[in-house]
């Protein structure tokens, strides 16, 4: 566009910003009403006492003192961290390898993808219920096959139950993340591999020297989704173990539900919710730093 044309349309454009703004109003209203106000509201509620039904009273820092002194909090934080770290460590290598394989083998993909992505479609409740039945020590798959190794009290032993949670989480989400990696691998220029092949690089060398470094931003995207997403594993754990046995799998989100709706203490539950928000924000910031670029913002500059 020539300079003349630009200057000629400039005044018109100024008007357009105002005339289009109304289009964002419905989205803004909904988002404010059920997103922003609750976000502020949860902080306010953490300084009150409320049983979920009756009146709300101001309670100062009672709930905070109560929760911060409770040994249940460090435990819930630790369990949340373990779920996050272990599910990341299991899912990431598996998803990268599967994604790389799927990106390069179209024929297999056509066959595999029919069943491959079904876990993506199932609700966490359905998955948890199916695994609960499958792992039942008396009526489950192991008992039916009469393989002693499989006949364990999978959800009754703290360590086994924790392992089951990690396994089921991976079962549910690896298909999704391998899909992300598949997209990333397909964007790597083919010429890089051709050059490496001419230099005599083997498959393993090419994977570590080309594929992995080129996937850097995909790894960050996928890891952010995994890590921040792991804070919100509520339905799966709630249905599968209900936080048990004891409190072995009681993550923060579950702790909040138990305090709020089972013990009718919305004040302390709101404290946990505020902690959840803070943990999520810190994680998002750290991961963004690691990435070295702010993907969403750099894209907006071009708007």
């Amino acid at each position: 566009m020539s300079a003349l044309a630009t200057s000629a349309t400039a005044p018109k454009r100024k008007g357009r910003g105002g005339s289009l703004a109304w289009m964002t109003v419905p989205a803004l209203l909904f988002f404010t009403g059920f997103g922003l106000i609750p976000l502020v509201g949860v902080l306010v509620l953490s300084f009150t006492s409320w049983d979920g039904l009756g009146d709300i009273h101001f309670a100062g820092v009672d709930s905070w003192a109560n929760v911060l002194a409770d040994p249940g909090l460090p435990h819930a934080l630790w369990v949340t961290f373990l779920v996050m770290a272990l599910s990341w460590a299991v899912q990431t290598p598996a998803s990268i390898l599967l994604g790389t394989f799927l990106a390069n083998h179209h024929r297999y993909r056509a066959v595999l993808s029919v069943v491959y992505f079904i876990p993506l479609l199932l609700s966490s409740a359905a998955i948890a219920i199916a695994y609960k039945a499958l792992l039942d020590p008396n009526f489950g798959l192991g008992a039916g096959l009469q393989i002693p190794l499989l006949v364990q009290d999978w959800l009754g032993d703290p360590y086994l139950a924790f392992g089951v949670v990690i396994f089921v989480v991976s079962w549910q989400f690896i298909p999704f993340h391998s899909l992300i990696y598949q997209g990333g691998v397909r964007q790597i220029p083919r010429s890089m591999y051709e050059a490496a092949e001419l230099d005599g690089a083997g498959r393993v060398r090419m994977f570590f020297s080309i594929t992995l470094p080129q996937l850097k931003y995909t790894i960050i995207t996928s890891s952010t989704l995994m890590v921040v997403g792991s804070l919100t594993f509520f339905d799966l754990i709630f249905v599968l173990t209900a936080g048990g046995p004891g409190d072995a799998t009681r993550v923060l989100a579950l702790d909040m539900y138990v305090r709020g709706w089972m013990a009718s203490q919305m004040g302390p539950a709101s404290v946990i919710a505020v902690i959840l928000v803070l943990v999520g924000l810190v994680l998002a910031l750290v991961l963004r730093r690691l990435g070295g670029r702010d993907a969403s913002h750099s894209q907006l500059e071009g708007a």
Partner: peptide, 23 residues
């Protein structure tokens, strides 16, 4: 508005459920 929505991506649903319940 756009920055608000981008910020919204980082808010976990669970964390706001108590005020949503109240509303």
């Amino acid at each position: 508005t756009n920055s608000l929505f981008l910020m919204g991506l980082a808010i976990p649903l669970q964390a706001t459920i108590i005020p949503v319940y109240l509303i």
